[in-house]
Design a protein around this nucleic acid. Sequence first.
DNA 1: CTCGACAGTTACGATTTGGTACCTACTGGT
DNA 2: ACCAGTAGGTACCAAATCGTAACTGTCGAG
Lengths: 127, 127
Amino acid sequence: MTQITPSAAPAHEGGAACPMDYILRMLMGPWTTYIVYNLRTYGPQRFGELKRRVAGISAKMLTERLRTLEGAGLIKRDYEATIPPKVTYSLTPRGHELDEVLEKLAEVAIRWQSEDRANKGAELKAA
Amino acid sequence: MTQITPSAAPAHEGGAACPMDYILRMLMGPWTTYIVYNLRTYGPQRFGELKRRVAGISAKMLTERLRTLEGAGLIKRDYEATIPPKVTYSLTPRGHELDEVLEKLAEVAIRWQSEDRANKGAELKAA
DNA sequence: CTCGACAGTTACGATTTGGTACCTACTGGT
DNA sequence: ACCAGTAGGTACCAAATCGTAACTGTCGAG
């Protein structure tokens, strides 16, 4: 995974900053938010479905991300030992708490995007 | 920087997911949130001050992160060509929009942390 | 009888990353 | 005279990361 907090101690001075480390370490994986986003938008999905949806991710990465998210308790893995095996991933309640944050983030992102578009338009007009 | 969206097309199906890419690409840098957090908590700071505060970061990383954040318009760099030079970094209004999100995130992070502590305690008691 | 799908795992290899050490140029302290 | 600090830049190198390709085992389809 991406190394967020380095080998050296992350410092605890702030106090409030520390819990963030944990949460950020997960969200920061390359595809993580994409996966959570998909799980939340399209509901529980199977491995192959998810892989097709996230388009571009390798099976390896997807597996790794899913394991990480599962380990963090954000998603649930339902394995049915049928032949062929059926594995369904879904967000846990804890996972859903996260998309509150993602929504806020998206809100800001969208605002910035439209602001940038507006500025660009204004600049072009002024020039 | 950490590669969030891979070489392959990030897919635009969702529509709402795309602006996030931009914003996440920044936040996901190793120390990024730490820096923003410090800037917001302790106010505008000079390079060395920040470096001491973030404790463990190398000058190289700090410089790189600050440049990225500056380029994204999240922080402002005030260079006074005194001897010795004095460079002060501060959050821009746009940067402050972000810490709304960080607060929400911290909120969740703190909740999880206390939940985990509670669970741990319960488990120990049950055992 | 061979091929594809399912849900992965493993090995290998290239790229990227981030740390360390060393450099700038100037000043103030001892 | 020499060292520390200010704000970095640069080169090199080890380590981590991520993609690709090949493998697991069983089933149904062709």
